[in-house]
């Protein structure tokens, strides 16, 4: 049995760990080599700062109170960004869930709104950015709306498909047992598509981050994207690189939490997916 090559390969456990780590090791060592070469030539070089320099920068931003504002900048950036992202995506999830579910269950509602939803889903969200900023202002509202807009249509359409996928027999059975239309939606359909909603949110978070950073880059007073685009002004890679890693970490943690919620609350869904 081959260990690595071919479709029948079965890498042993230890190999899996080694192989998984390999790309990271290569990336880090290429960076360190290139950084060393550049710093050798010019010890003040800012393009590829040393690890020590980055630690120093993080220390200054995360663990030292800012001289002018009297607060921990990285904490403030993180909280502001997370607030915008979470409000935007949650609002999108709630609207998307109810809209998609009702589109799936009620044909009349579907006839009214489906063509419209399909139409607006084609508008690229980022192209709306100037319009959103001018109509909703560049404070929190404009940013949250951009994130909302960028994610809610995908959620709506996915919720619609998930509702459609529910076997009709279930609904007929519920009706014969005397269920009202209302309870069909909220007692039969809703619990079944909840795990799918969380899955969709997981996928949408990537886009959410993109819209968050884009809106913070254009106009903001704080936030992770704000800081990155601000310090770009004097090429502070020693701040930018740790911030990118931090955003990646935050994104990973959010994804992990959502995965754990599915596993904890909807173990039947996990089993169902495994069974195909």
């Amino acid at each position: 049995m081959p260990i690595f090559w071919g479709i029948h390969a079965k890498p042993p456990k230890i190999w899996k760990i080694v192989l998984g780590l390999l790309p990271f090791i290569i990336l880090v060592s290429v960076y360190l080599t290139a950084s060393h070469v550049r710093l050798e030539r010019n010890s003040d070089d800012k393009l590829l700062p040393s690890i020590g320099k980055m630690i120093q920068a993080v220390d200054g931003l995360a663990f030292t109170k800012d001289k002018r504002k009297g607060e921990y900048l990285m904490l403030r950036d993180t909280l502001s960004s997370l607030k915008r992202l979470i409000i935007g995506v949650l609002a999108a999830a709630v609207v998307g869930l109810f809209l998609g579910m009702n589109l799936g269950v009620f044909p009349g509602f579907n006839a009214l709104l489906m063509p419209f939803v399909t139409f607006i889903s084609i508008i690229p969200s980022l192209s709306l950015l100037p319009i959103l900023f001018i109509s909703f202002g560049i404070d929190e509202m404009g940013k949250v709306i951009l994130i909302f807009w960028g994610t809610f249509i995908l959620i709506t359409r996915d919720m619609y498909l998930a509702t459609k996928a529910i076997h009709e027999e279930q609904i007929i059975k519920a009706l014969t047992l005397g269920a009202s239309q209302f309870s069909i939606v909220y007692k039969i359909v809703l619990p079944q598509i909840m795990p799918r909603l969380i899955e969709t949110i997981r996928l949408c978070l990537g886009g959410g981050w993109l819209f968050l950073i884009a809106s913070e880059a254009i106009a903001a007073t704080d936030g992770l994207g704000y800081r990155i685009f601000l310090v770009r002004r004097y090429m502070a890679m020693d701040i930018i690189i740790p911030y990118v890693l931090w955003i990646t970490f935050l994104g990973y943690m959010m994804d992990l939490i959502l995965r754990l919620i599915i596993k904890w609350r909807y173990s039947w869904y996990v089993e169902m997916r495994k069974g195909g």
């Binding site: 001018i134 254009i218 106009a219």
Partner: peptide, 22 residues
């Protein structure tokens, strides 16, 4: 001093349009 005002970092490409609408 800078403390007397509130600064908002804004891209130079959008600054004129945002000023007009505010």
């Amino acid at each position: 001093t800078e403390k007397d005002v509130k600064l908002m970092n804004t891209s130079d490409a959008d600054i004129a349009a945002l000023f007009a609408s505010d």
